[in-house]
Amino acid sequence: MPDETTECKPEQPTGPFIAMFEGFRKELDEHHDRRERIIKASRDITASSKKIVRNVGQPVPPFVNKSNAQYWETIQKQYSGIASDLQSLNAHRYAHNITGGNQEFIEALSFHHYLETQSLISYDEAKARIAMMSKDEAKDGDLQQEGSVVPLSPEDYILGICDMTGELMRFSVTSMATNGRLPAGRAKATPTSKSPAATEDADRMDIDSQALTSGDSQKPRTVLDDLRSIRLQLEMFEAPYGPKWVSELETKKMPVMRECVDKVEKALYGLTVRGSERPKGWMPDMSSDRRAEVESY
């Protein structure tokens, strides 16, 4: 193939455009380096987030904070390391390189938040959390300019929350298998109240707390109730037509999310029907494809 245009040494390309392309090369190299830094951070954040989720999901709440400290630290280090790469023009340029890490972190953060407060962390809270983590690497905030934080897009948040339903599902099923009940908050006078007080007295999701009391309007909220309300919100959410993340949401995340709610409903059905016969170590039967209307027993 006569494509050796640089007949001489490839080391010394000559030509009228070489100088111009040398400039381009420098810029492209910078771009690729930055992108790779972000991708690497995203991966590390993903890995640590997964570990947090795994630890947090274990029914040993008192220790979780300690054993997870190192992972939070890693994530913080990664966020603060790439904050300056994601500013201004570059915030959206590399958005799809960080979205994986952001989503995974939201999954961990929202799950953790849920176990502690029994409520869904808001977009603004999550954003503020990431902002905080991307800032205080070292205490001297003067080193970094103002507002140098890793941005969290609404897209990342929504996709992360979708993933979190999987954790709630696993949490519920594990609890049903080991304790024979669905994790629930403590009984409250007004479980439907929207006031923040509603979550205050149920600050800890405790497996040992009171189980469902049937036919009672005062029954405590269960994980299943919460799963359903997340599902409802996600189903009601009108995703715009076009952007890439929407197809991800609709073809992958939403079906999985629905599946998760279904699984818990089926497991609870199994528990309700055969609960009293439950031998030790029994796992809820989730292969059943019958739809169970659990609330109307």
Binding site: Y114, Q118, S119, L120, S122, Y123, D124, P154, Y157, I158, P191, T192, S193, K194, S195, A198, T199, R221, D225, D226, R228, S229, I230, L232, Q233, L234, M236, F237
Partner: peptide, 13 residues
């Protein structure tokens, strides 16, 4: 049925 999700979160999004 629950106060777990503040509907304002999703309205805002």
């Amino acid at each position: 049925q629950s106060g777990m999700v503040d509907p304002a979160i999703f309205q805002d999004l």
